[in-house]
Design a protein around this nucleic acid. Structure first.
Lengths: 340, 340
DNA sequence: GTGAAAGCGCTAACAA
DNA sequence: TTGTTAGCGCTTTCAC
C-alpha cells in the first residue's frame, strides 16, 4: 500500500535556487502580498525550472486546513445518480467552487464500513467540510459529522426539526401549487403517487396535496394515495393501482418526475389520453426519460440555487464556526407544459 | 477559507495517558506487530477515552502516502453518469477497495481549471493513484499524470498504441460476435449506428462490424453506417436516417444500448416490428431505459471485472512502480434476449 | 517489546 | 520587504 514519489522538489530547494528564504517562496506560492515584484518573478522562475508542486500534506499539517470539501452520496442517493437532479446539484456545487482553491470530492457511502472510513477521513482533516445528499431519517452520518465538529450542510432534511444546517426546497408549497392548479382546471378526482413515507420530502409533498384540497372543499380520500419509491417503475405500478381503484380519476400528482413518467406510460397503456382525460403533474423538473415523451407539467426545484446555497453556507461555516445551524428553504415554481 | 478543529487529541496525549511512548501508540493505531497484548489494550483504552483520531495530514507527511485513490470523470464521462455502465464501474471499484484502507474519491473534471486543480491535488500527494474514465483522444490528463509519475490506470484507451496502463473490453470482438449472430439468423442488410468517430471504442466496434461481414461474403456499404454519440436521442435520429436510406434493412447493430433503445423506438414509430422485421443488437448491457421496454439482445461488457482489474493494476503500480505500462483486454459476451 | 529522537515539507509569527 | 525559526502530528529508525 506504500508509495513514493521521490525527487519531488521542496520549498527549500526552490528557495535555494532563487536565493531567497523559505518564507518568501511560501508567500509567492500562496499569492500573498508583501513581496517585491522582481523577487516574485525570480521565485516564479525557480518554481517553474524545478517543476515545484506544493506538498499538500505538509500544507495541511502546518496550515490546519485541507482546501477540500466532500459531497457525500449515500446508497440511497446513488440511485438518483442518473437523474438530472443529481447531475445539476453536482454541477452547481462545482460551479460554486470554481473561484475558490477548494477541491470537490465526491464520495460514495454504501455500508457501515464505508461510512466509518469516510468519517475517519473527514475527522482526520482531509476535508474542511461536508455536503450531504442523504435524506433518510435513520442515517447516522449527519450526527457523526456534527459531533465531530465538522462543518456540514445537508440537502433536504431528515425531519421537521432538523439539527444540522440544511438547504431544502419548499416541497409542501410546490405540491400545493400543483394540486391547486389541477383543481382550478376543473379536475377534482386527483390521485397522488407519493414517495417513501419514511422520507420527509415525501411527507411534505403529500401534505401539500392535502393542504390544496381543503380550501377547495374537496375531501381527502386515502384511497387516492399510492406509495412509490421515486422510481419510474414504481410510478407505473402505482398508476395501475390507482386506475383499478378509481377509474374515474381525472388527474394525478406524482411526487417525482420519474414516477410521473411511469404514470404517463401506464395511462397510455390503459388507453387514457394525457392530458385530455387525465392530467399529470410531476415534481423536480427532471427531463422526460425519452426524447419521444411529451413535455410534462411539473414543479421545478431551483437546483442551481440549492447547490450554490449549500456551498455558500458551508464556506461560511468553515470561516467562522457558527454557534447554531441554519436552514434555507427555497421556493419552487410550477412549470406548465401541457397543451391541455 | 480557514478552519480549525481545536481540542483534537494527538498521539502524544494518548501516549501520555497510556503511560507509553509515542512509537508504541503508533504501532497500536496501525495494527503493527511487536506490541505486548496487555500494552496494546492499555493503549486502545486510552484511544477510546480520548476519542483519538489520527491526523491524516501528519500521517501522509511522515508516511509518504495518502491512502486514497481518485476515480476521475471528465466532462464526457459525466453524461454517462446515469448509465448502469457508470454505476457498475463505480460500484465494483468501491467493492475492490473495501478490504483496503484506501478511500475512494470521485472527482469531476469539466474544464481546464478543474483539470489543473486536480493535477495539483494529485501531484500534491493527496492521492496515491488515479483511475481515469476518460477516453477522448485529445485529453491531456493521462499524460499529465503519467509525467508526474503518478500511478494511473485508464478505462479504455485513447488509441491503438496507448501509453498509459489501461483495462478495456474486447470491443471489436464483441461487435463481430453480434453481427455474426445477425448474419447467421439470415439477416444481411445490417445497419450500424456507430459512436463518435474520434473515440477509439467506437472505431473498434465499427471495425468488428466490418470484420464480421467479410467471412460471410457480405459487402461493406458505408451508406449503412450512421454516426451517433452514444445517447438514446442520437440513436433515434440515426435510425430514422437509416430507414430513409435503406427501408429494406432487416437488422441494426448499435454501438451502445442507449442508441439501441433509441433505434428501437424509431423503428416502432415507423411501424416496424422488432425483432420480427428488424433485429436490433446493442452494446454494453445497460438496462433498457424503461421497464416497459422489451429485453434487447446485447453485447455485455464484464463491468465488474473491469473495475476490479483496474483496481488491481493500480494497487500493484502503487506498491512497486513498474518499469512499463500494462494492458488488459477483457472478453465480452453476447447476451441473447430476443424472442425472435 | 518499548522509548527516544530525527525528520517529513510546509505555514505563520517574529525579527530584522 | 525579507530571512529565520518554531512548530503542525505522525512514522520510522535506532538504541535499549
Amino acid at each position: 500500500m506504500g508509495r513514493q514519489r521521490p525527487g519531488t522538489p521542496t520549498l527549500e530547494e526552490v528557495a535555494a535556487l532563487a536565493g531567497v528564504g523559505r518564507g518568501t517562496v511560501s508567500r509567492v506560492v500562496n499569492n500573498a502580498a508583501g513581496v517585491r515584484d522582481s523577487t516574485r518573478r525570480t521565485v516564479q522562475r525557480a518554481i517553474a525550472e524545478l517543476g515545484y508542486v506544493p506538498n499538500l500534506a505538509a500544507r495541511s499539517l502546518a496550515g490546519h486546513r485541507a482546501d477540500a470539501v466532500a459531497l457525500v452520496m449515500t446508497e440511497t442517493d446513488w440511485r438518483l445518480f442518473g437523474e438530472p437532479f443529481f447531475t445539476e446539484i453536482v454541477h452547481s456545487v462545482g460551479d460554486a467552487l470554481t473561484d475558490t482553491p477548494v477541491q470537490l470530492l465526491l464520495t460514495l457511502v454504501r455500508s457501515d464500513t464505508e461510512r466509518q472510513r469516510f468519517v475517519e477521513y473527514a475527522r482526520g482533516g482531509r476535508v474542511d467540510g461536508v455536503l450531504l445528499m442523504s435524506v433518510h431519517a435513520e442515517d447516522p452520518l449527519p450526527d457523526m459529522l456534527a459531533k465531530a465538529g465538522l462543518p456540514t450542510v445537508m440537502l433536504g432534511r431528515r425531519s421537521g426539526d432538523e439539527s444540522v444546517t440544511y438547504v431544502d426546497a419548499d416541497n409542501a408549497g410546490g405540491a400545493r401549487d400543483a394540486v391547486t392548479h389541477l383543481l382550478k382546471g376543473g379536475r377534482d378526482t386527483i390521485g397522488v403517487i407519493g414517495g417513501p413515507p419514511d422520507m420527509y420530502v415525501a411527507q411534505c409533498r403529500l401534505r401539500g396535496y392535502r393542504e390544496a384540497l381543503e380550501p377547495a372543499g374537496v375531501e381527502f380520500r386515502s384511497s387516492l394515495v399510492v406509495e412509490g419509491d421515486f422510481s419510474e417503475e414504481s410510478g407505473h405500478r402505482a398508476m395501475r393501482d390507482l386506475l383499478a381503484r378509481h377509474p374515474e380519476l381525472d388527474a394525478v400528482f406524482a411526487a417525482s418526475d420519474s414516477m410521473a413518467a411511469g404514470a404517463l406510460n401506464a395511462l397510455r397503456a390503459a388507453g387514457r389520453r394525457v392530458p385530455e382525460d387525465v392530467a399529470v403533474i410531476g415534481f423536480d423538473d427532471f427531463q422526460p426519460a425519452r426524447p419521444t415523451d411529451p413535455p410534462l407539467t411539473t414543479v421545478r426545484q431551483p437546483l442551481e440555487a440549492i447547490g450554490r446555497t449549500m456551498v455558500r453556507l458551508l464556506l461560511e461555516e468553515m470561516e467562522e464556526s457558527p454557534a447554531a445551524w441554519r436552514h434555507v428553504i427555497l421556493p419552487t415554481e410550477l412549470v406548465l407544459r401541457d397543451t391541455a
